[in-house]
């Protein structure tokens, strides 16, 4: 849990890169990353979720049915700068691995931090999607990322 959490609740309009938007509840309360677990998801080339493991379901607060078929940006927290995701997509589009620290928004409005690694899935030379694996970040990396992202928003 972050020592700065206030527990405040607000409604925030989140605008996505594809022009869609949604009004989301945002609660300033961190949910700790579970020890020893990896959150795993896969998407198609457009970012639509095609696979969610149990840790992903548990940490996101959504059911598996709610996650499958929707864009991965459903997890995007408004504190995350768009430029971080642009870097992610630019990197994986070149066939490279992307790694970074991400603040995710849960269905209930609270948040969790992850160290995320995203790689393109290549089958017979064709891009068929992306695999994202998230693991527990250190508190110092979270603090650094909070400071950095605040300057990029």
């Amino acid at each position: 849990m972050s020592e700065h959490d206030t527990g405040s609740v607000e409604e925030v309009l989140i605008k996505y890169y594809d022009g869609t938007e949604r009004l989301a509840k945002v609660v300033d309360r961190e949910v700790p990353y579970p020890d020893g677990k990896l959150i795993v998801s896969r998407t198609d080339p457009k970012g639509i979720i095609t696979h969610a493991n149990r840790a992903f379901v548990e940490m996101s607060g959504y059911t598996r049915e709610e996650l499958l078929g929707v864009n991965h940006y459903i997890l995007r927290h408004p504190d995350m700068p768009a430029v971080a995701f642009k870097d992610l997509w630019d990197t994986v589009a070149q066939g490279k691995k992307w790694q970074g620290y991400v603040k995710n928004l849960r269905k209930d409005g609270s948040y969790y931090w992850v160290k995320a690694t995203v790689i393109p899935n290549i089958r017979n030379g064709e891009l068929v999607g992306y695999t994202s694996v998230r693991r527990k970040p250190s508190r110092s990396k979270i603090k650094e990322s909070e400071a950095l992202y605040a300057t990029l928003r």
Binding site: L38, V40, R42, K97, T117, V118, I119, R123, T131, V133
Partner: peptide, 11 residues
């Protein structure tokens, strides 16, 4: 198999 290998590649 490919999924498991992709996952390991991320690690």
């Amino acid at each position: 198999t490919e999924f498991m290998i992709d996952l390991i590649d991320t690690l």
